[in-house]
């Protein structure tokens, strides 16, 4: 436990020193929330809806940080630590190199949770946000999104041959998901064609799931999304375990 805490503390300091995760995982979601809040204010999501547009978008914004950490941060740090032979150095200590990866997962989970809390407080204080669903369902869904997004990142970081390649793959996954999955640009304002394309992105399914949970809607309509997220997680974790390269 002492080992984990010391490593977490140091790796967190290093991560904050880099600033990029602070910007992409903490600041970006807040900025988008404020913009949507200013544009839509307390308008209902559609005529006769029991919730506001912002309430509908809230859980989508909460996934920006998960996506940034899981699909961008995690693969970059994993491939960097491999190419700098940091993972190899851990092999000649009593600690498994897997621990440092676990520490990174913990750090990106922390970013995501901090982002969630900041979004909630900002939305509540300034835009009259109300959470309509069940907290239990929301956090189960949230956990599922975290696991499946992080498993994508672990797979990319674990099998990309070098840091450059990991960066390229991460960008290809990250930016389309950030823009087209409904995390920043609301899914509801997209043209139908774009919505169909967006449905292919795994994060879109995650957002659907969280929306239902946070708005207290019928969960049955998103069972397919749940299934998609589980399948992604299983496949990516399987590939990571089988093909992960320590050196």
């Amino acid at each position: 436990m002492k080992t984990f805490n010391t490593m977490l503390k140091t790796e967190l300091k290093l991560s904050l020193r880099g600033m990029d995760m602070f910007i992409f995982a903490i600041c970006v979601p807040l900025v988008v929330l404020i913009i949507l809040g200013i544009i839509y204010g307390n308008k209902p999501a559609f005529e006769g809806a029991g919730y506001t547009f912002l309430e509908q978008s809230f859980s989508a914004l909460a996934t920006i940080s998960i996506c940034a950490g899981g699909v961008m941060g995690l693969p970059l740090v994993v491939s960097e630590y491999r190419s700098r032979k940091i993972l190899k150095r851990y092999k000649v200590t009593p600690i498994s190199p897997a621990l440092i990866l676990f520490v990174q997962v913990a750090i990106y989970t922390l970013y995501a949770l901090v982002s969630l809390v900041m979004l909630y407080l900002t939305a509540k204080l300034f835009f009259g946000y109300q959470f309509h669903g069940s907290i239990g369902t929301f956090f189960s869904g949230y956990l599922l999104v975290v696991v499946s997004m992080f498993s994508i990142g672990m797979m990319v970081g674990g099998i990309a041959p070098n840091t450059k390649m990991a960066g390229a793959i991460a960008s290809i996954l990250y930016f389309p998901m950030l823009i087209f999955s409904g995390a920043t640009l609301p899914y509801e304002v997209m043209p139908t064609v774009l919505q169909k394309v967006a449905n292919i992105l795994p994060l879109t399914q995650g957002i659907k799931l969280l929306k239902m949970a946070s708005l207290g809607l019928e969960i049955n309509s998103v069972l397919l999304s749940v299934l998609v997220m589980i399948i992604i997680a299983v496949i990516c974790i399987g590939i990571s375990l089988k093909f992960f390269k320590w050196e």
């Binding site: 080992t3 010391t6 140091t10 290093l14 020193r17 700098r84 032979k85 940091i86 009593p94 600690i95």
Partner: peptide, 24 residues
């Protein structure tokens, strides 16, 4: 080892602290 296997932004004190925490 010959190679530079430390985190890019790590300080001397931090690298020593992290190394020390790996052992009993």
């Amino acid at each position: 080892f010959q190679e530079t296997n430390y985190q890019e932004q790590i300080t001397v004190g931090e690298l020593c602290e992290v190394t020390a925490c790996l052992y009993r």
